[in-house]
Design a protein around this nucleic acid. Structure first.
Lengths: 227, 227
DNA sequence: GAGTGGTCTAGACCACGAG
DNA sequence: TCGTGGTCTAGACCACTCA
């Protein structure tokens, strides 16, 4: 029912995975070269590389062309709650601001006419030295553009649309992840009491370094409305 | 910046992808055999297979051993909102009920002592003939066990923990997805007004067939609490 | 049995990184 | 330049499906 014939690459991947989780291969350490590992396991190099590809997809190793294969330093799995990352000591955020005009998918998202002046905030979050996640936040310029989005207090309602997908090649290189590691993609639209869109945020978080948390309160004094 | 050297397999995958999205290769159709395609594109069979692996990871094709490669019938991308799937005409759900006792991870999740009698509802959702998603819902037996979870109205608060991961081999075979296609994993814990856990739901949804929607209301009559 | 995909081999040649 | 990983070849052999 599970896997009746453990293939060579799975056997090798299992062995290396055990060494990583046991600490025999420590975080940041470089694995032996691929031809060397292939000789050790008595397989061809493509087979050895297939085994490494499995570990890469799990986020356990990082391949660096010309240098070697390295055990990934595990990032703490942070929690996104209420649209914000859990505060963390060695978390730092870089923000780049750009002015642009509404086009394409931004128009229905922000419910503005084409060409409306917008401000884009590009958030790059790092945990220590390593990239953690990235976000693009769009704000109409007529809504206190000088103010950073996270500081505005006029938000009455937020709508988070969550999906998982493979990273774009830009995201894969910026976040230094394999193109086979899924990212959680969150589109968050915040509106004020009048229903006007105050900001739209597009987040991309590698699936191995964050979980999302949503809390819903139900009106229980009006029984039966759930069914 | 993007991919400066389009590899052969990417070129082939792009071509096949275009044929699928253009409708030249229709949903459910069988592709030419791998040796045939390899000859058509003038590449070796491993290279051709690497190209197909890309499309498989995207959920565009389904490989069936001994039969061929088939264009996947795209499932409508449904929305999970408020812990429920969007109602759909050809959506049907199979429920299997099992009684068991609290163990392992269920104990902290449900906040019950080890060995507490529980009822497990295994939900299998199909869209037409194809499996869509699966869920395991756990309810303490002292809480109206005869009633199906979705009918209870005593829920005051729900907490959804969302992450993306590769499917277990059981999920991959049950849901008929490639082991490389990520699933959205949702752990939903519902409590009543006294804080007692009413039910815990563990959902697994292939990332290509659902998106999640969460709405948060903020108290705006108390300004400044956001900052 | 015929045809299909699944796995693996034993190389070759190219591209990247560091000295 | 040298060692590394990245891509690709041209096969071989096994396992599964269906007639």
């Amino acid at each position: 029912m599970i896997d009746p014939v453990p293939s060579l690459r799975h056997t090798i991947a299992d062995d290396l995975r055990a060494q990583i989780t046991a600490g025999t291969l420590k975080a940041g350490a470089r694995l032996a070269s691929e031809p060397q590992l292939a000789a050790d396991y008595k397989v061809s190099t493509p087979t050895l590389r297939n085994a490494l590809a499995l570990l890469q997809a799990e986020g356990l190793i990082e391949k660096i062309h010309g240098k070697g294969n390295f055990v990934r330093v595990p990032l703490r799995r942070l929690t996104y709650a209420d649209g914000r990352l859990t505060p963390d000591a060695d978390l730092h955020i870089t923000i780049r601001t750009t002015n642009l005009r509404a086009r394409g998918g931004l128009i229905p998202l922000l419910k503005v006419p084409s060409g409306t002046p917008l401000t884009e905030f590009l958030y790059l979050t790092h945990q220590g030295e390593l990239p953690h996640s990235m976000a693009r936040i769009y704000v109409p310029q007529n809504l206190a553009a000088a103010e950073l989005p996270q500081h505005r207090s006029s938000v009455a309602k937020s709508r988070d649309q969550v999906s998982a997908r493979l990273p774009t090649s830009e995201e894969a290189s910026t976040l230094r992840i394999s193109s086979t590691l899924a990212v959680l993609s969150i589109t968050r639209v915040s509106t004020d009491t009048t229903g006007r869109v105050v900001e739209a945020a597009l987040l991309a978080v590698p699936s191995d370094r964050a979980e999302l948390l949503f809390t819903t309160h139900h009106a229980t004094d009006e029984k039966g409305q759930e069914g």
